[in-house]
Simulated assay, not measured.
Amino acid sequence: MLTTLKGANAVLMFFLELGVLASVAYWGFTVSPNWAIKLLAGLGGPALFIAVWALFGAGGGANATIPLTGIARAVLEIVWFGGGAFFLYAAGRAAPAAVFALVFVVNAVLRILWKQV
């Protein structure tokens, strides 16, 4: 049973990662009425987040170019997932931003308790 829950928590983290990208893209496409700015922010924002995650956080650090551990990894995750919540909030979606942040906190606490980090 615990193994199944740990697996579900890992899958949840993957969907949270995708949610960060969707949040940044959503913000980007709503940030301005100008289509050039929408395209730049809506595509460039997620691209920047993808680059940072690939460099430092991919696969729990195992697949990262420069894997981070300990406090540095915790800061990366807080900035990454907090960024997802922040950009939802910046796009005028306060309730989904709060839910996103809460789900991340629950996921992170479970990963720490279950030694999935």
Rank of each mutant, 00 (worst) to 15 (best):
F56Y: 12
L113V: 07
L113S: 09
M13P: 00
V24I: 07
L113R: 07
V106Q: 03
A94M: 13
L43C: 05
L40W: 08
L102G: 00
V75I: 14
G70D: 14
L40F: 07
L102C: 06
G70R: 09
A47E: 03
G42L: 01
L48W: 08
Y89N: 04
T30K: 02
L21P: 04
G84W: 09
L5W: 11
G42N: 03
K38R: 15
W35N: 11
A10I: 06
G61W: 02
V117I: 08
A58S: 14
G83F: 14
G45K: 03
W114S: 13
A25Q: 04
R111W: 00
A47Y: 00
I37V: 15
A62R: 07
W27A: 12
L76V: 13
N107Q: 14
S32Q: 11
G60V: 02
T3M: 12
P33H: 06
G44M: 10
F86W: 10
A72T: 15
M1K: 15
W80D: 13
V11G: 04
T65I: 12
N34M: 11
L48E: 03
F81C: 06
W80M: 09
G42K: 00
P46E: 04
R111F: 01
L110P: 06
G60L: 02
L110C: 12
T65W: 10
V103T: 05
F86P: 00
G84I: 12
A95K: 04
F14R: 11
G82D: 15
F15W: 15
L88G: 03
V31P: 04
N63P: 15
K6V: 08
G45T: 04
V79F: 05
W35C: 01
A91T: 03
V20P: 02
V105C: 06
G84V: 07
K6L: 06
L48K: 02
G44Q: 04
F29V: 02
R73E: 10
E17F: 09
L55M: 11
F56M: 05
A47F: 06
W53D: 14
L88W: 03
A22F: 15
T65L: 10
A25Y: 01
G44E: 03
N107A: 07
N34A: 14
G7P: 07
F104G: 01
V103K: 00
W80K: 08
W53N: 15
Y26R: 00
A10Y: 05
G44P: 11
L5M: 12
Y26P: 01
V24K: 01
P46I: 03
T3I: 05
P46G: 12
T4L: 14
L18P: 00
G92R: 11
L39E: 01
A25W: 01
N107D: 01
P67H: 13
F56S: 05
R111T: 06
A91F: 00
V106I: 09
A41F: 02
A97T: 02
A47Q: 07
M13I: 07
N9L: 05
A10T: 03
F29A: 06
L55P: 13
I66M: 11
L76A: 11
